[in-house]
Amino acid sequence: MSDERTARLVRAAQNGDTLAMNDLLDELCPYVERICAPIALQQGEDAAQEALTAIFRGLRSLKEPAAIYGWARTVAAREAVRIARRGARSEPADLSELPARGDPQLATDVHDVLTRLTPEHRAVLVLRDLEGMDEQTAAAQLGIQAGTVKSRLHRAREKFRKAWSA
């Protein structure tokens, strides 16, 4: 679907056209599901429903219709982290624990890798590998602390790779 048509749908939905809201849901649903599932794992459906609910409740406040995907992405990732974290202890994310982009283990069994990461890490991984963002930007968008230096990142990736190839 073209960006122009999406922006038109958002405008119509903001003006109270519920058919446009229906069309917009058809368009956003697979996108939000794709982001929520790898972050919230077995709670992926709950996360997608919560994220889409927040998006449709807040639609009128979106000033720039063309920004709908960027906004939906941030809401989806944050909601997925929140749902996955529900009831769990929160700790700052250390990005050095993330597998590197192109890590062979990721391609072999992404699900197994994901279950070993915290929800915050999974969110950064999804935004990086599915959405093409860099790690620091992804962390900033999620509002999580990411105090990591490059050498440490490199060392940890090596450790991660060794653990998987052992």
């Binding site: 790898p38 794992l41 992926g44 639609l59």
Partner: peptide, 25 residues
């Protein structure tokens, strides 16, 4: 990476209706 087998989920129609209704005061 997009070709990788990422976990997926799909909302059923009832969940979709809850979402859409949330946008209608």
């Amino acid at each position: 990476m997009v070709g990788m087998n990422w976990p997926t989920s799909e909302l059923d129609t009832v969940a979709r209706l809850r979402v859409l209704a949330a946008g209608v005061r």
